[in-house]
Amino acid sequence: MKIAKVEFQGTARWAAITDAGAIDLTPLLEAPEGAHPLLSEAGVQRANNYVAGCSPDSALEDFSFEPFLPAPEKIICVGVNYANRNEEYRDGSNLPKFPSLFMRAPTSFTAHDRPLVRPRESEQLDYEGEIAIVIGRGGRRIAREQATAHIAGLTLMNEGTIRDWVRHAKFNVTQGKNFDFSGSIGPWMVTADEFDGFDSLALQTRVNGELRQDDSTANLIFSFADLIAYISTFTTLKTGDIISTGTPPGAGARFDPPVYLKPGDVVEVSAPGIGMLRNGVTDG
């Protein structure tokens, strides 16, 4: 099932997305603004049963997408998690023993088909196509063997980065990762029951139709299970938390010379079985 937050006739609501349109899931929610009841196995089953007896409330052309952010307490992003991405740094380093992590704020994301904003402070807006985990069942010190059972579903992220601002300080990248609307997420979450494992998911990023990133989760240094187990060691994962799992080689900063996004560009992040996240670029 595809679950999304959509805007229809001036109102934001959670919906199931089908080939024919959107089915309003508000009757299944304790509060219309909160998607958490849809993120458990039981919630997904209730939604499947409900959708089976419904016709779309709105056609595909009659609504727009909101960012897929089910009120996360935490948005945790993973850096340099594809083996080829580590090689891309050309520093001769071995594969890391532990994941590199940083946090993003919800305000740093826009929705599918809405523009990424290149801020007036920099011309170095870069793309990073990623697959993101949405946590269903929370927990602390989750065993690796049980970790994937805590996944509600997967969505796509363009983990947009202001490159010169990630180098402002010695030990952090926070400021360059959190400019308002510099990244995007969505358009929906595909529930975990739609996947036969998570270890060979293809991921591609295109800019103006040109393939820039092309890899598979088979090449992750730290698998989805590794990440959930590691992160939950030091913090309690909560329902609705998001873990973005890293970007493959091919970001604009790695070209010689670098190729950054500019107004009018269109970025498409896609993964079979999940979908496609598309955004233009504007100045702000």
Rank of each mutant, 00 (worst) to 15 (best):
F255M: 12
P257L: 06
P67L: 05
Y82I: 08
G246V: 10
L95R: 04
G139Q: 09
F234G: 15
P96T: 08
G21E: 11
C54D: 00
R212Q: 14
T233A: 14
D62G: 03
F98E: 13
T148P: 02
I243R: 06
P56M: 01
D24T: 11
I231K: 07
N84D: 15
A15E: 04
T148F: 01
F102E: 13
P32I: 03
V166E: 15
M157S: 00
F234L: 08
L95N: 05
P257Q: 10
R254E: 15
T191K: 05
T236E: 15
P258H: 13
E210L: 13
S184M: 04
G43K: 09
L60G: 00
R163T: 02
G160F: 07
L95W: 03
L38S: 02
C54L: 14
Q175N: 11
Y127E: 04
P187N: 02
T217Q: 02
R118V: 12
A251S: 15
N94M: 10
S223H: 07
E159T: 12
D214M: 02
V190I: 06
R104D: 06
S100P: 01
K74M: 14
P72R: 11
G275R: 01
Y230E: 12
I76L: 14
G21H: 11
G10H: 10
Q124V: 05
H168A: 07
P67A: 03
V281E: 02
Y260K: 09
F65L: 00
